[in-house]
Design a protein around this nucleic acid. Sequence first.
DNA 1: GTATTTTACTTGCAAAATGCAAGTGTAAAT
DNA 2: ATTTACACTTGCATTTTGCAAGTAAAATAC
Lengths: 147, 147
Amino acid sequence: MHCASEFALNFMKAPKRRSQCPISSSLEVWGDKWSLLIVRDLMFNKRFTYGDFLKSEEKISTNILAARLLMLEKNDLIEKLEHPDSKAKVLYQLTQKGIDLIPVIVEINLWAEKYFQLTEEKKFLIKEIKLNKEKFISNSINSLLKD
Amino acid sequence: MHCASEFALNFMKAPKRRSQCPISSSLEVWGDKWSLLIVRDLMFNKRFTYGDFLKSEEKISTNILAARLLMLEKNDLIEKLEHPDSKAKVLYQLTQKGIDLIPVIVEINLWAEKYFQLTEEKKFLIKEIKLNKEKFISNSINSLLKD
DNA sequence: GTATTTTACTTGCAAAATGCAAGTGTAAAT
DNA sequence: ATTTACACTTGCATTTTGCAAGTAAAATAC
């Protein structure tokens, strides 16, 4: 990439961070009630399309979903691909940056297991995590890469 | 506690969860742009009072801070104590449930380190984490308990 | 003892984000 | 050729946020 345009791009991208704190900066990207649910669906629930995300139990509304997908894409957590089945569909996929959120999602699961009542399905997932956390993470990464 | 009132209390408390998903349930408690910053301050920045939280770099506004403190307290992540120095002050402290968020906060730090430019101070903290994650977590827990 | 300052909030209001229902445009299926 | 599927967009009411100012109790200064 050309230097000037790269600079311009980086310059334009900068969305005036509140601080240079890792927690604060992270929250500015995915610190809302919906973004991590999309990430969760892409990570563990085999949901890859706009329609898939709408089917999730939490019932995100269509405009919020569109806004979040754009936000996550702009921040390089997800990318849009052609769907192999149809040109009418859009395939969303986690980028490396998105995949790297697996350890965060894993720890949230472990925390929540201690303090919330969960479905048997979720409890089973967390049982797998507790059996061997590192293995669970590397398996998850592999399952996302080899698609 | 009496059975009927315990039931009533539990019943009243239940804030209609969107789903029984660990991620969704967690986000309903602390999935906003501010809550984890308060937790961070209590955890690592030696900030324990309302005034302390206001001093943080991200500049939370007073009404939002009050609302978040109430929310975190209602959800048992923090508790209010008498301040040893003065009756005018309130000492906020993480509960066990709040302390249990350390691994989540740690993983957010590690993720952010990979994708954001951080201050030297924060980079130092993350270097400590990477040196020995388990040790860092147990040290952090101990430092919060023995106060 | 009185006045000022500190501390932890609350209140009012404008601006932004959210939630719901309906609509649009392109591609696929019938 | 018509209907359905899919990925959005739009309009509008409600809720949440952000900013500025205010309040009340406790501590400090004089």
